[in-house]
Design a protein around this nucleic acid. Structure first.
Lengths: 229, 229
DNA sequence: GTGTGTGAAATTCTTCACAGCG
DNA sequence: CGCTGTGAAGAATTTCACACAC
């Protein structure tokens, strides 16, 4: 949290390439998490090879990814952990807290939040929503909770820009529309149905647990096959 | 669950191409979920366009993906939902239940399980593990729970082939080694560190929530940029 | 006409290889 | 020397376009 190049005027950050490829973005996020721990432990420098091992990629890939950053390493001795972390943060816009809300105050939603909060992910949860509010979880949430029909209003008032959807079933679409109407521009969707928003200014990240479980099952089933290196 | 071509002798399933690309695999898993609901509702046929809309892809992509299956559609009227579902299931090895365990009986782990069970994902949870077992959650798990040091033994005895890791911090590696030693061949890792196993027969799927949250944050931050269509 | 199946083109991403700096 | 930075080659994936089937 030291020499960041002023978050209020971030256009200088884009001195290099324009858009970052999706896979690179995901890896950089992982790198950021990792650097967070590393700096806390007081490590001063790290090499691309070491970073690669930590995030499950080759050193080639890591260096290539860093080429989208303005920050540069030092030939022969690697990267300054603090500077690198800040460079990643500012390039990715993670240096400012994002005001977020959770839709679906069920076990999964609350668990995720606890997880995310624990690892200080740059999100500040400021509201929770749920279709039926007579649940006990109202107490545990730790933030003000509202019924779903107040989404638009609360999102606007609280200047929320990111939403996490964890409701199990029902009309995600309607919820999403209310969110977007209120001003949300990013949605992490954990519901078991794909959400798509026409509005190009709104980014949706559809995660599919069950799918990911199945992927592994499938890989298992194919593991015992004869050929194919 | 009707005319599957005998899971005990699955080599006929590979009459087409050998290996399925990762992205295709993920989409097929989504398709499978979707077809499950569809068949329950009694829908008889569906077109590639409709499937595409449901899983967030184009009809091109869907048809291309299906080209890895033996099952084929009917020109002019789409696909038979039941036959297609069974074809996907058998090609992906989802027609047999996989015996699974959960390592990390915390809020997140239990929530995920509830979720997965709700949508009958083909996994049967048969055991739970946790480093400290004096937790109350022992009661809620609904399956026998054991301390971590019994992993290898229990995994072997219960013939567990898939594990889900949700422990928050600490030595994932050690846990993973015990799992593999016991006979686990697939791991879904939700811990905030990348797990890598040398053994080529073991498949690991590293999921990173916090990363996925950050990805959206980053996309938000870049949304307001000038050019780049 | 409507909708599938698939080689081929276009794109995106990864890996390589080597110049250059500390 | 060890390690970074990056254009260029290579591989994987998506998109296209059109022949063919119902």
């Amino acid at each position: 949290m030291k020499n960041i190049t002023i978050p209020a005027m971030p256009y200088r950050l884009r001195n290099k390439a324009g858009r970052i490829p999706r896979p690179t973005l995901e890896r950089l996020c992982r790198v950021y998490s990792m650097l967070g721990e590393l700096t806390l432990r007081g490590e001063a420098t790290i090499s691309s090879k070491e970073i690669g091992e930590a995030i499950g990629a080759g050193s080639h890939t890591v260096r290539k990814d860093f080429s989208y950053l303005s920050e540069t390493g030092i030939s022969g001795s690697g990267y300054d952990t603090v500077r690198l972390r800040d460079a990643v943060a500012s390039r990715l816009g993670l240096d400012s807290e994002t005001r977020a809300c959770l839709v679906g105050l069920n076990q999964l939603g609350l668990a995720l939040l606890g997880h995310a909060r624990m690892f200080s992910s740059g999100l500040t949860l400021v509201a929770g929503f749920d279709p039926n509010l007579n649940v006990v979880e109202t107490i545990e949430a730790g933030v003000p909770v509202y019924p779903s029909y107040e989404i638009t209003e609360v999102v606007r008032r609280e200047r929320i820009t990111l939403a996490v959807i964890t409701v199990a079933g029902g009309n995600i679409r309607e919820i999403a529309e209310r969110l977007v109407q209120g001003g949300v521009r990013g949605i992490v969707n954990l519901a078991p149905q794909v959400l798509k928003i026409r509005d190009a200014g709104v980014h949706v990240n559809n995660l599919d647990f069950i799918g990911e479980f199945r992927v592994v099952s499938a890989l298992l089933a194919h593991a015992g096959r004869p050929a194919a290196v």
